[in-house]
Amino acid sequence: MLIPFENMPDDARVWIYQADRKLASTEVEAVNTTGEKFFEDWAAHGAPLKSSFKIFHNQFLVISVDENFNKASGCSIDSSVGFVKQVEQQLNINFFDRTKIAFIFNEEVYLESLSNLKASVAEGKIDESTLTFNNLVSSKSELETSWVVPAKSTWLGRYFN
């Protein structure tokens, strides 16, 4: 049961998938078309899930489910991962690359590889106030309040001491 992302309750569970590159507008449309089909029928052991999804910054796919309605099961979560993998193949993109950290520079998302992170901090390209994404938030309210945060308030803080 697909509902608009904005109508999801604050305690709705979220999963964030960061793409390894920015999606073109035609690719966002393709994700929306595929997602509408998937989430309209997404279920846990035959029970419909009140769910939604949204692309943020043309870089992040965020999936949400209202577990007050019906809880997502292991199998249903696996099927949502299958949906993400289907989108990956469809668009030749990677949503599971954990070797890149996203930052915001000049209102745009910038990806920095883990291997270059120390050097970027040393050069001053990334500092403690540089905004980054905490992709581990688990609810819609956290997405709205704690997803985009200064680097110093994440695990990256250790690079600034």
Rank of each mutant, 00 (worst) to 15 (best):
K71H: 12
S51V: 07
N161M: 12
F56M: 00
F96S: 07
F160G: 02
E123V: 09
F133V: 01
W15K: 14
F38N: 12
A44Q: 13
V149A: 00
S139D: 02
N161S: 12
G74L: 12
N7V: 00
P9D: 00
F60L: 01
E107V: 11
I63P: 04
S120H: 11
E112G: 13
F105L: 12
F53S: 03
I126L: 02
N58F: 04
A72E: 08
K152L: 11
G46E: 15
A12G: 00
M8R: 01
T132D: 08
S129N: 13
I126H: 02
V28L: 09
V121M: 09
A44R: 13
D97C: 08
G74V: 14
S76A: 06
F69H: 08
L136R: 10
L143E: 00
F5L: 03
D20K: 01
F60A: 03
N7M: 06
M1N: 08
K50Y: 11
F38Q: 10
G74N: 13
P48L: 03
K37D: 13
T132V: 07
N135C: 05
L156E: 03
M1A: 09
E112I: 11
S79M: 04
D11L: 08
K71L: 13
I77C: 09
V65Q: 02
V81F: 04
S141W: 03
K85H: 13
S51T: 08
S76E: 04
N92Q: 15
F60W: 01
W42I: 14
E6G: 07
N116W: 10
Q59A: 05
D127G: 10
S146C: 00
F69T: 06
D127A: 04
S115I: 10
A47S: 15
V31A: 03
L143N: 00
T130H: 11
K22D: 15
F83W: 07
P150C: 06
S146K: 08
V65P: 06
T145F: 01
F39V: 06
E88Y: 05
I126W: 06
S113M: 02
V84G: 07
E36A: 05
E123H: 12
S139H: 02
Y17V: 03
S146L: 01
S129Q: 15
V14F: 05
P9V: 00
N135T: 12
F103G: 02
E107I: 11
K37A: 13
